[in-house]
Amino acid sequence: MDKPLAVVIDSLTVQLAGNYCLEISSLAVKQGEAVLLYGENGSGKTTLMKVLSGLVKPDAGVLKVLDRDLTTMTDQQVSQFRADCIGHVFQELNLIPFLIAMQNIVLPCGLSASRAGNAASSGLTPEYEAYQLMARLKFEDPDRLKKDADQLSRGLQQRIAIARALMGKPRLVLADEPASAMGSYSRKLVYELLTTWARENDSTLICISHDEQADVLFDRRINIKDINKNAELNPLW
């Protein structure tokens, strides 16, 4: 039996700063599927990720994520949905600088009872789940997890952002160039973790990357140029 769809987009348009930056006629991603999104700079990959997590509202079209119609939900409902169901690795990382690394990782469990409940249902405390995730990312030194986030290197901060996105087993993981500041070994490690973790938990993964060695790990590759009519409007092209 076919798996249900985690993402459904139909005739979606998004304007930013007066420009049509997304115009997608159709896109569907199945639940548990690992999708690699690639394309040139400014072609709308990050905007699409933000649309999927409800951070950017579309101007028109159908947008269903995990069976929820984001276009009809209020801001509060979208925030709640994002906290409960979506793990997002941002391109700018967006760590809270005054919280220690561990507190940053478990932050989603503090903002969502559902994510905290998911951690507890596995018989783990959020902290223990965080240790496990960090161990899989070869970041096992507990002392470094007690340091403020802004005292760590960019590569370590990226690992923390990845672990934060996976905490509490969200049903959809959006990763925007999650390994851009890492060496080739660490990059491979990150993509392996993300894809393996998504399969283990039947979560959907949509990951932006320009890394060719990651291609084989994903179920599907999508060039943003193929789905976004406005991708080539960027003056860089």
């Binding site: 304007q15 700063a17 007066g18 420009n19 933000k50 951070l55 950017v56 409007l233 003056p235």
Partner: peptide, 27 residues
């Protein structure tokens, strides 16, 4: 929070004239 729609002005040259000035980017 409530004014999540961030207003930006396009500074990119050479964009099509059909693009309106309406701004809807959530931070």
């Amino acid at each position: 929070c409530s004014d999540g729609q961030q207003k930006q002005k396009s500074t990119q040259p050479g964009l099509p004239a059909k693009h309106s000035s309406r701004v809807e980017g959530n931070c």
